[in-house]
Amino acid sequence: MGFKLLSKLLVYLTASIMAIASPLAFSVDSSGEYPTVSEIPVGEVRLYQIADGVWSHIATQSFDGAVYPSNGLIVRDGDELLLIDTAWGAKNTAALLAEIEKQIGLPVTRAVSTHFHDDRVGGVDVLRAAGVATYASPSTRRLAEVEGNEIPTHSLEGLSSSGDAVRFGPVELFYPGAAHSTDNLIVYVPSASVLYGGCAIYELSRTSAGNVADADLAEWPTSIERIQQHYPEAQFVIPGHGLPGGLDLLKHTTNVVKAHTNRSVVE
Results as ranks from 00 to 15, higher is better:
Ser38Arg: 10
Leu83Gln: 00
Glu172His: 05
Ala90Trp: 08
Val212Ser: 07
Ala200Arg: 01
Ile151Ala: 07
Ala179Glu: 04
Thr261Trp: 10
Gly2Asn: 15
Arg76Trp: 06
Leu13Val: 15
Lys258Ser: 13
Leu247Trp: 15
Val42Thr: 12
Arg167Gln: 13
Val146Phe: 13
Asp164Met: 11
Trp55Leu: 03
Ser223Val: 09
Ser27Val: 13
Leu173Ile: 14
His180Val: 01
Thr222Gly: 13
Gly65Lys: 09
Thr207Cys: 06
Ser264Ile: 12
Thr60Gln: 14
Thr222Gln: 14
Leu5Tyr: 15
Val256Ala: 05
Val189Asn: 03
Tyr68Lys: 04
Leu24Gly: 09
Asn255Ala: 13
Thr207Met: 13
Val11His: 15
Gly197Arg: 01
Ser161Gly: 13
Ala209Met: 06
Val212Gly: 04
Ser139Tyr: 10
Leu6His: 08
Pro221Phe: 04
Leu159Gln: 00
Gly122Met: 11
Ser31Gln: 08
Pro107Ile: 09
Gly245Phe: 02
Pro176Tyr: 00
Arg110Ala: 14
His117Ser: 00
Ser208Met: 11
Phe174Ser: 05
Ser223Met: 02
Ser70Ala: 04
His115Lys: 00
Gln235Ser: 11
Leu81His: 02
Val42Pro: 15
Glu172Tyr: 04
Glu44Trp: 08
Leu81Lys: 00
Ala51Tyr: 08
Lys258Cys: 08
Pro35Leu: 09
Ile186Phe: 06
Thr114Trp: 00
Leu83Ala: 02
Asp29Cys: 07
Leu10Phe: 15
Trp88Lys: 00
Pro221Lys: 08
Ile151Lys: 08
Gly158Glu: 08
Pro221Tyr: 06
Asn211Tyr: 05
Asp183Tyr: 04
Val257Thr: 04
Ser7Glu: 09
Thr86His: 00
Val189Gly: 01
Asp77Tyr: 07
Thr86Asn: 00
Asp29Pro: 09
Asp164Ser: 13
Gly89Lys: 02
Arg142Glu: 14
Asp214Tyr: 05
Ile40Thr: 14
Arg110Trp: 09
Val45Trp: 02
Val11Pro: 15
Leu143Pro: 04
Asn262Cys: 05
Glu44Thr: 13
Ile201Pro: 03
Ser155Ala: 14
Glu147Pro: 06
Gly197Phe: 01
Leu82Arg: 01
Pro232Phe: 00
Thr153Asn: 09
Gly197Thr: 03
Leu13Thr: 15
Pro41Met: 13
Ser223Leu: 03
Ser205Pro: 08
Pro190Asn: 08
Tyr68Trp: 03
Pro232Leu: 08
Ile201Tyr: 00
Ser162Ala: 14
Lys91Asn: 14
Gly131Lys: 10
Leu185Gln: 01
Ser193Ile: 06
His180Ile: 00
Phe63Thr: 05
His115Trp: 00
Pro23Phe: 09
Leu13Gln: 10
Asp64Gly: 15
Tyr202Pro: 05
Thr153Pro: 05
Ala19Pro: 14
Ala15Leu: 12
Val166Ala: 08
Gly242Trp: 05
Val126Gly: 04
Arg128Gly: 11
Asp85Thr: 00
Leu249Met: 11
His154Asp: 08
Gly122Leu: 06
Ser181Val: 03
Val37Asp: 15
Gly123Ser: 04
Ala19Gln: 15
Tyr175Lys: 02
Ile40Lys: 06
Asp29Ala: 11
Val112Phe: 06
His180Pro: 02
Ser161Leu: 12
Ile40Ala: 09
Tyr196Met: 08
Gln229Cys: 04
Val265Asn: 11
Gly198His: 02
Asp125Gln: 10
Ala144Pro: 06
Leu81Met: 08
Leu127Trp: 01
Val256Ser: 04
Thr253Leu: 03
Ile100Arg: 00
Val194Asp: 00
Gly242Gln: 02
Val11Asp: 11
Glu203Gly: 06
Pro244Thr: 03
Val166Ile: 11
Ala59Val: 10
Thr207Lys: 15
Gly177Met: 00
Ala87Trp: 00
Ala98Glu: 12
Phe63His: 05
Ser113His: 12
Asp119Met: 00
Arg128Asp: 11
Ser70Leu: 04
Glu145Thr: 11
Val257Cys: 01
Thr134Lys: 01
Met1Tyr: 07
Asn255Cys: 06
Ser191Arg: 11
Asn71Ala: 05
Pro138Val: 08
Pro239Leu: 05
Ser62Gln: 08
Leu143Met: 11
Thr36Met: 12
Tyr196Phe: 15
